[in-house]
Design a binder for these strands. Structure first.
Lengths: 197, 197, 197, 197
DNA sequence: GATGAATGAGAATTCATTCAT
DNA sequence: AATGAATGAATTCTCATTCAT
């Protein structure tokens, strides 16, 4: 079960393409093998089973992406800048590779065990970042104090996910990253008028 | 292909339970039949095939739920009340039957064609409602004018969906509807301080 | 198991159409019932099972047709006229109803037990007729004496059947009966020159 | 979909036996697999589906047999000798393997598409050969000039087929090839007396 | 390590037949 | 007699996984 070899990544990339095209359930190991240019049996030298391909992909991608998220947040100074960097990076990472986006958003969610993991990990990381952003914002006087961070996190993840989903269903026909700024603006100001109270 | 008979609903209900427990892909028609107390073949008197069960469920539930959404919105006077009624009803409908919630949120999305439909229909209905709410709110002076309704819609749907997902993954262990008010408060005011600019 | 009622014949006719269109094996009892305008279950009041429909059709048709063959033969005076009448009638009967022809020629033959019967009955009747024709012809001095009637019978049945098959496969696009005279001419004179020896 | 491997022929042979015994429709893929000594799934490595087994068999056998027919005809000098060689070879080939004969004569004909093909190919080949035989015979002065080759072909194919069918239904209990000479004699001289005109 | 032929468990679906109404 | 909903046995076909080479 060698990982991080060339063939391992070759299979992973092929798998993402195949899964994105046909959906995980309708993809066969043979199709992945063919796309990767290896024999069917070879898959099993690198992955425990078909599910494991999705799981590996998820962990690999998550690690990669989350690290970038953290760095993006670090670069922001104010809470708003941090949040903006986070959302921009999130959208940019998914815009980079629509197949990856499809598999991440759609295919992984059908996978019971994996979906749990995704939500947990995504939540965990987002919670960390959002917690930090909110705290800093509160210290800097830009973020309200009476917030339930758990809900804020859902609120942000949910909106970002949905924006990505809409973009996927539009087959990536517009610039996803350009949604970041207006979206963050909504997160911060809401849809109400500022002096509404 | 008789619909709206007693047996039709009997099978539909059994299917939702089975799909919620095991996931659509890991459920067999035989299991649904058994749970419904009918013979395997009987399923095919009411549904074209296994997929059709999910499709029928989706259309049936969507029609039902959307009508309730519309009525809830109608009852609100101000934009905020309308929005609140929408979100409360949405969460309440899903809280009522966690199996339905699971199938609706998770299983349907793995179905390529159906997922498209869900997103389209959900978007269409939400767009109608949100457009109305936003317009009324703008007339009443409670909602900002510089908003892109398409994005607002994603923002709201996304957040609500994610809140439901989180509740599902917590196995319905808390009161979902109680999330409605703080969520709407976030939609309207955002996380920023009101006089931030 | 009432036979010779109106509904019995109604079902038989519907069955022949359905079997001719789709083949016996790919036809369903439900299709026959629908075409006959009766309920599925009704079929079983008149026929033991699906096979029995084919069997009944065969016996019914055979009785009918063979009687006509015999009469046609009776009307001929010389052996040649008798043979001509037989072949003309045979081709005419099948030309009358191509669906019947299809079922008789193609569908019945796939039915092991029935095929046996068909061949036996057809042989028996043809043998009777051909024997008669040959004997009369020999008495009249028009038919050779050194003939093996069994083979002559095969020779004639085979050729007639094949001519019908060709016509069926051409979708009845030409006049089948016009084949009778040249065919009988071949039976009598063969393809060789008369004084060849 | 490897063809011409050992296993391919192994399955084909098993299939012919099973189909001959039980008929194509009443045979199951599992039975064929068992008889061939392979797993059910293995069938599908060599054949697209159950139908394809029959189709492959037909094409394989037809190619083989037709080649032999052509060679047999080539060896004859006079038209009569050519015809005799053709019929002898035809009967001999089918006598060699009664299972093959059964499947070829009976099972293939129930298969709509295949039946069409069989008749077309058989006709085409027979037409070629018979056309040649008739032309040569006419040049040599042994075959009449006023013949419609299409009908002569049907006449011969039909008779030969029927002779084979009768033999099959008699379970191969007599020598089929011995029918060739009297049959050809009938083709050439007919049943009439030579000086009848 | 790599292959890919072979496996066989598993599932969807069909449809002849029954039988309560 | 007629109906047609319900049955469930039967069968095809798929495909993840294994293992001899």
């Amino acid at each position: 079960m060698k990982r991080n070899t060339e063939k391992y990544h070759q299979i992973l990339e092929a798998a993402v393409k195949v899964f994105a095209e046909q959906g995980f359930n309708h993809s066969t190991v043979a199709q992945v093998a063919k796309k990767a240019g290896v024999a069917d049996g070879t898959i099993y030298l690198y992955f425990k089973n078909k599910d494991d391909i999705l799981i590996q992909f998820y962990h690999y991608k998550t690690r990669l992406v989350f690290e970038r998220f953290r760095q993006a947040v670090k670069k922001g100074r104010t809470a708003e800048q941090k949040l903006l960097n986070l959302v921009r990076t999130h959208l940019a990472e998914f815009q980079k590779d629509i197949n990856m986006a499809i598999v991440y958003q759609a295919e992984i969610h059908q996978h019971r065990r994996l979906a749990q993991d995704v939500i947990k990990e995504m939540s965990k990381m987002y919670r960390e970042i959002i917690t930090e952003v909110v705290e800093i914002g509160q210290q800097q006087g830009h973020i309200r104090r009476n917030l339930y961070v758990g809900l804020v996190m859902r609120f942000i993840i949910g909106a970002v996910d949905e924006v990505i989903n809409a973009w996927i269903h539009a087959r990536g026909s517009y610039d996803l990253v350009s949604m970041a700024d207006p979206l963050v603006e909504l997160f911060i100001s809401g849809i109400g008028v500022a002096d509404r109270q």
